[in-house]
Every structure is written in C-alpha cells, then in structure tokens.
C-alpha cells in the first residue's frame, strides 16, 4: 500500500474504448515493463497515473498518498518521460534547463552534466534541431537529474538507434541498482527481456498479466509445425496461432504441452504477446 505506486480499480471510458478497471502495485527498486499492442491503453494508463487524465473511477497512490492534494511534493520524487512529447521547440536546452532547475529541491547538477555528456547532448541546441530520439534523451536526462525515485516512462526507447537504446536500458539498470523504481511501457519486447524484473501486460484495456517476467514466459510453450499439425491440436488448448516462413506456431500452456507430449520450445515474451493478441482477435471475430 505504501509502495512507490499502487493503482486500484482505475477506469476510464471513451467512446469505443474502456480502460480497466486496473489494479497493480510496483515493487520498490524493480523495473516493471508495461507491454501491450498499440491502442491497448498503455499511454492512457500512464497519463491517468501521472494526472494528465482524470479517471472516472479508481485510486492512484504514490507512497501511500494520492496525487491530488500532494501533486507538488510527489512530483519531486517522480520522473515522467513520454516519447513524442513536444516541448519548447525554439528554446535552447540550456535555457530550458536553467528555467526548470529551480523547481527541484534535489537537483543534481553533476548527474545532469554526466547524462548530457553520456547522451552526447549539446546545450546550445534547440529541440527542433534534435531528432526525436535526442529529444527523448534530453527528457530522460532531466528526469534522471532531479533525483526521481520513481520513473514512469512511456515508450522511452522508441525512435532510438540500437546503441542509444542500449545506453538507455543500461542507465535504467544502473538506476534500479541504486534503488530507483521504474515502470516503462514499450512494444519492443526485447528491451523488456533485457531489463524488466516484472511485467504488466495490457490487452484491450484490461490487465492480462501482472507477474515476474520469467514466470510469465515460463508458463507458456511454443509448438512449431505444419498447418495440419497445428490444426490437429485440441482447439481449447491452443492460445493463438501465427504463421511464419517455417510453418505455423501455436501457443500452449506449459502443462497442456506436457500433457500432450508435444515437442515444444520455450516461448519468448514476444511469442506470448503476439499469440495471445491473435487469440483475442479471433475471439472478437
């Protein structure tokens, strides 16, 4: 209840889309990956958590306190970064930093300079002269420089080249080792496999999984075969099928695969997600 973030019964209704009710806790000092396909509600959830949206129901508590009434003090301890977030396109990074620095009680100038160097950011440049990836790095740099204990990141590696992505992921791991709690949404599942301790899996506005990453993938097995072999599997045990150049794959629960005596391979995070989404698409159809 007094963890960095506790969400209970969070719900928001839009025409054609309903989020939640969602409930989850973040474990302190862990990296939690927030996965789901486009339109699953990841950004809506994060925006509701940070107070951009007013949910119709549910509560969001940071260290046991609701954001409302404690916004200023809680945001000292929270960093929120969203890919594609525009900001002051014609002001220099130096001017932006100089203006924002006084807002934070625990601003760490040495950390700021370190991250600016690490991300190869030039303070004289304006955001409009930077690529989306570099803008994102700057936002990360700001979030990392004010001593945030909880980082909420919406697609933080989107638009970054592989080297930059690795840098960002390594930075997150370093922060986690220092005790920082991280929740980051992404649809790049390999990023989560490299960094996440836990995952939240959101599908069509509903939370389908909230568990350790390893436990999540370990619960599934991937069967690969011909279309006929997959068709022959008991329909109730197959959780989504996908075609690739080698044939057809089907996702099964580990115990079902064992009971059928099938020769399966371990399922990766992406395998699980795409098969479950395909199953959900079939159910909708």
């Amino acid at each position: 209840m007094n963890g960095p973030l506790c969400v209970e019964g969070l719900g928001k209704v839009y025409p054609g889309f309903t989020l939640g009710p969602l409930g989850f806790d973040l474990e302190p000092g862990k990296i939690t990956g927030f996965i789901g396909r486009n339109g699953a509600g990841k950004t809506t959830t994060l925006h509701a958590v940070v107070g951009f949206l007013r949910p119709e129901r549910g509560t969001v508590r940071f260290w046991g306190q609701p954001l409302e009434g404690h916004e200023a003090e809680l945001r000292q301890r929270i960093g929120f970064v969203s890919a594609g977030m525009r900001f002051y396109q014609r002001q220099s990074l130096k001017r932006i930093t100089d203006t924002l620095r006084p807002f934070y009680d625990r601003w760490d100038e040495a950390a700021y300079e370190r991250y600016m160097r690490r991300f190869a950011l030039d303070e004289r440049k304006t955001p409009e002269k930077l690529s989306n990836g570099m803008q994102l790095k700057y936002l990360l740099c700001l979030a990392l420089s004010h001593g945030a204990e909880l980082l909420l990141l919406d697609e933080p590696t989107s638009g970054l080249d592989p080297v930059s992505r690795t840098e960002v992921l390594e930075t997150l791991l370093t922060l986690r080792d220092a005790g920082c709690t991280v929740l980051f949404s992404t649809h790049i599942t390999s990023d989560l496999e490299k960094t996440a301790d836990r995952i939240l899996y959101l599908s069509r506005g509903q939370l389908r999984a909230d568990c350790e990453l390893d436990a999540f993938t370990a619960a599934w097995r991937l069967f690969r075969g011909t279309a006929a072999e997959v068709e022959a599997l008991p329909p109730g045990l197959v959780h989504g099928r996908r075609r690739d150049r080698e044939g057809v794959s089907a996702l099964l629960r580990r115990e079902d695969a064992a009971a059928l005596g099938l020769r399966c391979e371990p399922a990766g995070l992406e395998d699980v997600m795409v098969h479950l989404e395909q199953e959900a698409d079939e159910d909708d159809a």
Binding site: V50, F52, A72, R75, Q76, F87, L100, F103, Y104
Partner: peptide, 8 residues
C-alpha cells in the same frame, strides 16, 4: 502538458 510534469 510539459509544465504538469513539474512539481506544481
């Protein structure tokens, strides 16, 4: 939106 990420 950007200002709302600040401690205000």
């Amino acid at each position: 939106g950007f200002t709302l990420t600040l401690p205000v």
